Amino acid sequence: ELKKVVALYDYMPMNANDLQLRKGDEYFILEESNLPWWRARDKNGQEGYIPSNYVTEAE
């Protein structure tokens, strides 16, 4: 089971490997080892790295 998180803030990608975050949207965490960058997937199936301090665990 993948960990689900909710974006606390918008995040615009800095490079091609990053994933855009939209405040309030849910994302699945694929990999937590790259702290403070986590690999995530959005609801459309896009994958990339996000800043872990921009998300919180979903209820």
Score class of each variant (00 low, 15 high):
Glu1Val: 08
Glu1Leu: 08
Glu1Phe: 07
Lys3Gly: 04
Lys3Met: 13
Lys3Thr: 06
Lys3Leu: 07
Lys4Asp: 03
Lys4Gly: 03
Lys4Cys: 04
Lys4Trp: 03
Lys4Gln: 07
Val5Asn: 01
Val6Ala: 04
Ala7Cys: 04
Leu8Glu: 07
Leu8Tyr: 03
Leu8Pro: 02
Tyr9Met: 15
Tyr9Gln: 15
Tyr9Thr: 15
Tyr9Pro: 02
Tyr11Thr: 04
Tyr11Gln: 03
Tyr11Glu: 02
Met12Gly: 05
Met12Pro: 12
Met12Tyr: 12
Met12Trp: 08
Met12Val: 11
Pro13Arg: 05
Pro13Gln: 03
Pro13Trp: 01
Met14Cys: 07
Met14Thr: 11
Met14Lys: 13
Met14Ile: 09
Met14Pro: 13
Asn15Ser: 15
Asn15Tyr: 04
Asn15Pro: 02
Asn17Ser: 13
Asn17Val: 08
Asp18Ala: 12
Asp18Gln: 14
Leu19Arg: 01
Leu19Gln: 01
Gln20Tyr: 10
Leu21Met: 08
Leu21Pro: 01
Leu21Ser: 01
Arg22Asp: 05
Arg22Lys: 15
Lys23Arg: 09
Lys23Ile: 04
Gly24Glu: 03
Asp25Trp: 13
Asp25Gln: 12
Asp25His: 12
Asp25Ala: 10
Asp25Lys: 08
Asp25Ile: 04
Asp25Gly: 08
Glu26Trp: 10
Tyr27Thr: 01
Tyr27Lys: 01
Phe28Cys: 07
Ile29Ala: 04
Ile29Val: 13
Leu30Asp: 02
Leu30Met: 07
Leu30Arg: 04
Leu30Val: 12
Glu31Ala: 12
Ser33Phe: 12
Ser33Glu: 10
Asn34Met: 14
Leu35Asn: 09
Leu35Ser: 10
Pro36Lys: 14
Pro36His: 06
Pro36Thr: 07
Pro36Ile: 03
Trp37Glu: 14
Trp37Tyr: 11
Trp37Val: 14
Trp37Ala: 11
Trp38His: 11
Trp38Ser: 15
Trp38Thr: 12
Arg39Ser: 07
Arg39His: 06
Arg39Glu: 04
Ala40Gln: 01
Ala40Glu: 00
Ala40Ser: 03
Arg41Tyr: 03
Arg41Asp: 00
Arg41Asn: 02
Arg41His: 04
Arg41Pro: 00
Asp42Gly: 06
Asp42Gln: 02
Asp42Ala: 14
Lys43Arg: 10
Lys43Cys: 10
Lys43His: 11
Asn44Asp: 12
Gly45Pro: 00
Gln46Val: 15
Gln46Gly: 10
Gln46Trp: 05
Glu47Trp: 06
Glu47Phe: 03
Gly48Val: 00
Gly48Ala: 01
Gly48Trp: 00
Tyr49Gln: 15
Tyr49His: 08
Tyr49Met: 14
Ile50Glu: 00
Ile50Phe: 06
Pro51Gly: 03
Pro51Ala: 04
Pro51Asp: 04
Pro51Val: 02
Asn53Met: 08
Asn53Gln: 10
Tyr54Ser: 14
Val55Gly: 01
Val55Thr: 06
Val55Gln: 00
Thr56Cys: 10
Ala58Asn: 12
Ala58Lys: 13
Ala58Met: 10
Ala58Phe: 12
Ala58Arg: 11
Glu59Tyr: 06
